[in-house]
């Protein structure tokens, strides 16, 4: 009789611990996913801010280098792709394409010293590189949180709950290799 009661109490305690662990872990996933989303939206904001700056930059460059038409079209196309992109993966891909188009534009700029000394252009370039710095800070923070999230999804025993609740790994925001070796224009 006594043994049975003890066994029952132990069972109840185990069940309670099990449930509280389940809910605790589940809530952790919810909170983590929320911070993944909010850190992504910071990247998103800055990408759009950058897209907004581009027409001004292109127009200023056109004032000095109207003949470089190919690059203007490439930049404009990449920009509209970024604005039209829906999913995070598409946005990352479009943003990388815009990176490479912009860096080609900046190589062209090197050939026009008057353009480089134009005050409006300098101001726009400061805004552009400020936005790029913000994107890279936001990307680092996003990747850190995604790393936490993905580790938790893969690790035992929280992976059981992730599987049950349908949580999947989040994509990292990777920079393609060519972007790392892009020529930098310094002011």
């Amino acid at each position: 009789m006594k043994k049975g009661l003890i066994a029952l109490i132990v069972l109840v305690i185990i069940v309670i611990i099990g449930f509280s662990w389940y809910f605790g872990t589940y809530n952790k996933f919810v909170a983590l996913e929320e911070s993944v989303n909010s850190s992504w939206s910071e990247i998103d904001n800055q990408m759009l801010r950058r897209a907004d700056l581009i027409p001004n930059i292109v127009n200023t460059v056109k004032g000095y280098a109207a003949q470089e038409k190919d690059i203007f079209t490439a930049v404009a196309e990449a920009r509209s792709k970024l604005i039209g992109a829906g999913s995070a993966e598409d946005k990352i891909a479009a943003n990388n394409e815009l990176d490479s188009a912009l860096s080609r534009l900046l190589v062209v700029v090197e050939n026009y010293p008057e353009l480089k000394s134009d005050k409006l252009f300098t101001q726009l370039m400061d805004e552009l590189s400020g936005t790029e710095n913000r994107i890279s800070v936001a990307r680092k923070r996003y990747n850190d949180i995604v790393k936490d999230f993905n580790t938790k999804i893969k690790m035992f025993p929280s992976n059981i709950i992730a599987g049950m609740s349908g949580y999947e790994q989040k994509p990292y925001y990777e920079i393609p290799d060519y972007a790392k070796t892009n020529p930098q224009v310094n002011f």
Binding site: K119, Q123, M125, D126, S129
Partner: peptide, 8 residues
């Protein structure tokens, strides 16, 4: 203090 102003 926007970026353009800091640059200036």
């Amino acid at each position: 203090l926007p970026d353009g102003l800091i640059g200036r």
